[in-house]
Simulated scan of single mutants.
Amino acid sequence: MTATTATSNSDALTGETYPVEDVGAVRVVRGTGIMVGMRIFRRGSDDRSDSAGGGSSSSGTSTGTSARCPELGTYGIDINADPGPRMGDIGACEECTQLGEHHWAHLRICLDCGHVGCCDSSPRRHATAHFEESGHPVMRSAEPGEVWRWCFLHEAMG
């Protein structure tokens, strides 16, 4: 069971105080269902354990993550082993660019084929559409400094 810590925060604009609860790596504003943050595990960090109780294996995959999601276990954590962007640009959504659009929230890269698509916070959600069309289950954030992976099948982060 994950330990929780109850605290309160105050809104910088209004000065209102509201209760928050730290639940593992996520802070939840009590009574609202709002998650305020998420812990990102960085390469080279000694703290890679997750809620399933695993850590890093000698092969470079997270053993706890692979226990809940076998797909995440098949993709290593080394971004140098990932496929390159298939259109050559990791900084642009393939479909949005073809449509003449250049505004998206964040980008994701498919770890099967290198497709770069915009995230679900973007209007067109091309990364999810790619999964639905191709069946490729795992993608990684294509944002600078982010290394997390997401499995669409199990809705699991690794």
Rank of each mutant, 00 (worst) to 15 (best):
D50F: 01
G55K: 13
R30G: 14
G54V: 01
D46K: 12
R30Q: 15
P19H: 09
S51G: 06
V28I: 09
S62G: 08
P19S: 11
I34S: 05
G31D: 13
S57Q: 07
V29Y: 04
S49P: 00
G55E: 09
V20N: 05
G55F: 07
V26S: 10
S45V: 01
A52R: 00
G55M: 06
G33Q: 10
G33I: 12
T32A: 13
E21N: 14
R27I: 07
P19D: 07
F41A: 04
I34P: 00
G33V: 05
G60M: 06
S49G: 04
R27F: 08
M38K: 06
G33C: 14
D50H: 04
A25R: 03
G37D: 12
D22P: 01
I40N: 03
R48N: 05
T32F: 12
R27M: 14
R39N: 14
S59C: 15
G54P: 00
T32P: 05
G31R: 11
G44V: 06
M35H: 13
G33P: 02
A25K: 01
S51K: 08
G55N: 15
M38A: 03
R30I: 15
S57W: 12
A52N: 04
R27C: 11
M35W: 10
S56Q: 11
G33R: 08
R42Q: 01
A25S: 14
S49F: 03
G55P: 01
R48M: 09
P19Y: 14
M35R: 09
R43Y: 09
S58Q: 15
G60E: 03
D47N: 07
S62M: 02
